[in-house]
Amino acid sequence: MAPQALRDNWNAAWHALGAARADEALCVELQRRYDEPQRHYHTLQHLGECLAWFEHEKELAERPGEVALALWFHDAVYDVHAHDNEARSAEWARGAILSAGVPADAAERVHALVMATRHDAVPEGRDAKLLIDIDLSILGADSARFDEYERQVHAEYAFVPTEVRLPRRRAILQRFLAREAIYATPRMHALLEARARANLARSIAAMA
């Protein structure tokens, strides 16, 4: 997504939440975070892909501004050695929204949406389902992009010995493949489900 499109999405999200203005410095800081050197997949490329999907599917959202901001913040904190990235990202989002004078209930909903990207439970509610489908859209990408994604994820965890990293990664992909449905929203399911399953099966086989 081009820089102006990112900025337009950011401004529209804050406007939808009723904020007096969008914090441009925060927008710049978030983009800087997504450009940190330890990142290979959780980068501006990933954020841009997510926001592009959002622009296509945002009419499905009950509160589109909240979904957009949850996407902006969902990987704002990304420490490959930590296990609380989503919690720290969600706290940052909540604090930023409250600081902008937006009602607390919106801040709590965005916090919950960011926490849903842990992928440890089936999402509930239209906004959470849309958000998670968007976050998982990479699984249904064309084979070249999916293979690039797999290389990027392995690069982020290159410090983990191969004999440990490959079985862990294979188990993660198998959990997605074992779901009754990977995508919950009808259009993304129709567009991505079959390709995601083919990508996952191919990657799992390659790591066997």
Rank of each mutant, 00 (worst) to 15 (best):
E66Q: 15
P37L: 15
G65C: 08
A76C: 07
E59R: 08
H42N: 04
T43W: 06
A87W: 02
H42A: 09
A90L: 07
L44N: 07
T43C: 13
F54R: 10
A70T: 02
L60C: 11
D35G: 13
E24I: 15
A25N: 01
A96P: 00
D35F: 05
R88Y: 08
Q45H: 12
D79P: 02
H56N: 15
R39I: 03
Y78I: 03
W53H: 15
A61M: 13
V28Q: 13
H74P: 08
W53G: 04
L26F: 02
A87K: 02
A70I: 02
H42R: 05
A87P: 00
E24F: 06
A52I: 01
A82M: 04
E36K: 08
A96F: 04
W72Q: 07
K58P: 02
E91Q: 14
A52V: 03
P37K: 10
C27P: 01
I97D: 03
L47I: 08
A90G: 11
A52Q: 12
Y41I: 04
C50V: 09
E55W: 05
D84N: 10
P37N: 09
E36M: 11
W53V: 01
E29W: 06
D35Q: 13
V80T: 13
E55I: 03
H83M: 10
E49N: 15
H74A: 10
V28P: 00
P64T: 05
L30C: 04
H40T: 05
E24M: 06
C27N: 11
A52C: 08
A68Y: 02
L47V: 04
E49K: 15
A93Y: 02
S89F: 08
A70W: 04
L30H: 05
C50R: 07
G65T: 07
W53E: 13
W53R: 15
A70Y: 05
R88H: 10
A82V: 01
Q31F: 10
A52G: 07
L51P: 01
A61R: 04
L26P: 04
Y34D: 02
Q31T: 08
Q45W: 12
G65I: 09
H42G: 08
A96W: 04
E36N: 13
K58L: 12
F73G: 00
E36A: 15
H46L: 06
T43G: 08
Y78M: 00
Q31A: 10
E57L: 12
W72N: 04
A90Q: 07
L26K: 06
K58M: 14
V80Y: 01
F73V: 03
A93H: 01
R63W: 09
L51M: 06
Y41L: 07
L44D: 02
E57Q: 12
R63S: 12
A87H: 11
A25P: 01
